[in-house]
């Protein structure tokens, strides 16, 4: 593992809760590792596993999916579908030999700026320990 390794994380954040919560972390000037590129979606239920696999195969070392707490989904039950899809996605990742810790599902409400920062911090730390994913066999310099 190169000492210059900085984990790259793609974050799928739902507009109503997680993205707003992530914004709140910024407005509150909470400092956390800037390793996430946020991708805004309307609901975590929009996150097709294909998008997650695309992220991992495009250079991401980890993927974060974040949505509203169960029961609080702006679209009532979108996040319930996310849970189901996530479980299947995990099985698929196992088969690919991708460590489960690399893809996380978190519930972050619009007022949980602190939590978002902590999640990203934890995840970055974990990915540092796991090392780069090297999906393409480490062709990247």
């Amino acid at each position: 593992m190169s000492s210059n390794y900085e984990p790259k994380i793609v974050g799928f954040l739902c507009k109503w809760c997680a993205y707003t919560g992530a914004d709140l972390a910024g407005t509150s000037r909470i400092k956390y590792p800037p390793n996430v590129t946020p991708i805004r979606v309307m609901c975590s239920g929009r996150v097709d596993p294909v998008l997650v696999m695309k992220a991992l195969s495009s250079g991401a070392d980890g993927v974060l999916i974040a949505g509203c707490h169960p029961g609080d989904c702006h679209y009532t039950s979108g996040n319930v579908k996310t849970i189901r899809r996530f479980k299947l996605l995990q099985k698929m990742l196992d088969q690919f030999g991708v460590e489960r810790d690399r893809v996380r599902l978190e519930w972050i409400s619009a007022s949980e700026g602190e939590k978002y920062a902590q999640v990203v911090e934890n995840m970055t730390e974990t990915l540092r320990t796991l090392g780069p994913l090297n999906w393409d066999g480490g062709k990247e310099a």
């Binding site: 793609v10 991708i39 309307m42 998008l51 992220a55 495009s58």
Partner: peptide, 22 residues
Amino acid sequence: EQRNFTDDQLLAEVESACASAK
């Protein structure tokens, strides 16, 4: 397809999100 959140759009966004900035 979801207008303004199509697979093409999101895949493109994701693809570039982790591309090496060098």
